[in-house]
């Protein structure tokens, strides 16, 4: 962990259920709430909210891994990038039909949600939409 290789940034992806990724990467692109954030070694310290979307891990100028996250927070320092995700699934493992079913269900719930539940319902819809979009990427 303390190996400070100049060319890499220590990337960690954590969900409440487990530590998904913890490895040095060359570049990682995180879907920030106000736009995608590309993190290279030596990035300025940053704390940002993450919208539902896909994290790209780059290596040798190419995308090596793509992981869907359902929103969360990212903390970046010059040698480390930590993403706290509410949920995370590698894009290859997303099942399109399940994702679509979830979107439909989320939308139904959002339609009947009362005042207190409306924000949460909208959030679930956003996550499900992101998941469906990510499932579309898997085919590429």
């Amino acid at each position: 962990m303390t190996d400070t290789n100049v060319g890499t940034v220590e990337f960690e992806l954590v969900s409440p259920a487990k530590l998904l990724v913890s490895e040095p990467v060359e570049m990682v692109v995180v879907p920030g709430a106000e736009g995608d954030i590309g993190v290279l070694p030596g990035h300025s310290p940053l704390i940002a909210t993450v919208r539902p979307g896909v994290i790209d891990i780059h290596e040798g100028g190419k995308v090596r891994d793509r992981i869907f996250v359902g929103g969360g927070f990212a903390e970046v320092s010059s040698e480390r990038c930590t993403v706290l995700a509410e949920e995370a699934t590698p894009v290859d493992e997303i099942d399109r039909t399940i994702a679509e079913a979830r979107l439909i269900e989320a939308k139904e719930k959002a339609d009947v949600a009362d005042e207190t539940g409306v924000a949460e319902a909208a959030r679930q819809v956003a996550i499900a939409e992101g998941l469906v979009a990510a499932a579309g990427l898997a085919g590429d």
Binding site: M1, P45, L46, R80
Partner: peptide, 16 residues
């Protein structure tokens, strides 16, 4: 295992 400390307390950029 806490990764090596960031040294002096960094000033963060916040977004939003």
């Amino acid at each position: 295992e806490t990764p090596a400390d960031d040294g002096p307390k960094a000033v963060y950029i916040f977004e939003p």
